[in-house]
Simulated assay, not measured.
Amino acid sequence: MKHNTSPVLALATGIHKADAEHLHQALGPTFPLLCTEGSIESINPETLSQVQILLPFIHPTIGPAEMEAMPRLRLIATRSTGYDHIDLQAATQRGILVANVPGYGETAVAEYTFGLLLTVSRKLHLAYRSVQQASEPTRQLQGFDLYGKTLGVIGAGAIGLHVIRIARGFGMQVLAYDVMPNRIFAEVLGFLYVPLDELLASSDVVSLHAPALPSTYHLLNTETFRKMKRGALLINTARGSLVETEALLWALDNGILRGAGLDTLEDEDDLQHLEQALSPARQQSVQHNQALMSHDNVVVTPHMAFNSIEAVHRILNTSAANVLAFLRHQPQNLVTQEKNASI
């Protein structure tokens, strides 16, 4: 942890030592930056009251209470593309700008998507367990080829398009659903845009790459799972809120889904804070997630699809550039409207 008493104090939370050192270099070795592997709660209130620039990761939520503890806060430069962990309305009301990292992990997340897909489709996690337990290989470890299968991509943005490129290399047919279809990309990459219902009914694998928005909340629920091709796989490297967990359990238990590869879960933060008192609704969410993880045909990883060396460096470099641009009174990559937020 490093602390500088210069008038402009920036705080980076949830950041490991090596990444903190990289961020220091990107901002300049004399830049007044305080780094902690912990959360905002790990910083003493007096220091927190001096923070003018916050560089959080996706956990935990930055809401009115956290902003109240930082009365001098003028910029939140989140080290992520998604910003659903930040209360934008509260930030706007306080004149706090919010900047994100628009693109950094297209390659990393797309490759990880296929890592999850191959793990579930070829049952690599079960095969590994079998070797560890010195048990004989059985027919239960038999998977299936991706060649010739149909992949349905929900959200054909930068990551989704990279997933499509990889899928075509595997010899898969690809369908895509997006609110803003790009026919040129479809022609060049060789895939089809179709309505969501058609994608669900026709896809052997459905992969989620949509952002967390009110319009995408519980995009996959009991009603939409009923429309899916029986025996399909679900891959989610986007956001947990896209999938209603109780409905996912129902789809798995009733054979609608053959399996799932999940790098993100609904209310995943609560799994790391089981010692805290949770509301009944959040307790139920934790129980649903624990039930998911008990399924042999489900692979869950801790929201790490982005986590390659190259992608993390791009995150840090862009976050530093966002801070420096703000200090030059030329803020960039904003997701909120500029409103007298300069230092």
Rank of each mutant, 00 (worst) to 15 (best):
N289M: 01
F31D: 01
V243Y: 01
A305T: 12
L146H: 10
I43Q: 02
I235R: 09
I184M: 10
T119P: 10
R230N: 11
E268C: 14
T216M: 06
A277M: 15
S135C: 09
V174K: 02
I62R: 10
M228E: 08
V51H: 12
A26K: 03
P32K: 11
Y147R: 14
F306M: 15
N322Y: 11
F225M: 00
E41C: 06
A210R: 05
L316H: 06
T107K: 11
E68G: 08
N44C: 08
L11P: 02
T301K: 09
G261D: 03
E46F: 10
P302G: 01
Q284I: 02
E198A: 13
G14R: 10
W250E: 13
Q25A: 15
A186D: 01
E106A: 12
F191N: 01
G240Q: 04
Q290M: 15
T224W: 03
A10E: 05
D84L: 02
S319A: 10
M304N: 15
L249G: 07
A110M: 06
N100G: 03
M1F: 13
G148A: 05
L248Y: 08
T13G: 08
E41M: 10
V8W: 00
G82V: 06
I96T: 04
T30A: 14
P56S: 00
L327G: 09
K17Q: 14
H162M: 06
I62Y: 01
A247Y: 10
A341W: 11
A281V: 12
S294L: 11
E338D: 14
G38A: 00
E66Y: 05
Q89I: 04
D270I: 15
I15Q: 03
G171T: 01
T224H: 07
K149F: 13
T107P: 07
L118K: 02
L252P: 10
F114D: 05
T5Q: 15
L117N: 13
S294H: 08
P64G: 07
A156R: 05
E310L: 05
G152D: 13
E198I: 02
P331S: 01
N289S: 04
M304R: 14
L196H: 15
I58W: 12
L242V: 12
M70Y: 01
L9N: 12
G231Y: 00
T78S: 00
L48H: 11
E198W: 06
Q173G: 03
M172V: 13
E268W: 14
K229N: 00
G148D: 11
G143E: 02
L208M: 06
L11I: 13
C35N: 13
L208Y: 00
H288I: 04
V188A: 14
M304E: 15
A99T: 03
A325Y: 05
P195H: 01
V174G: 11
L116F: 07
V243S: 04
G160Q: 03
L48W: 15
E244C: 12
E223S: 04
F144Y: 00
G240D: 00
L88F: 08
S294N: 07
I235P: 01
K339Q: 08
D253V: 14
E106W: 08
P181F: 00
D270H: 13
A110P: 02
S207E: 13
M172T: 09
V153K: 09
H59D: 14
S49R: 01
P29H: 15
L249A: 01
A176P: 12
R129E: 10
N340D: 11
A10V: 02
K229S: 01
S80E: 08
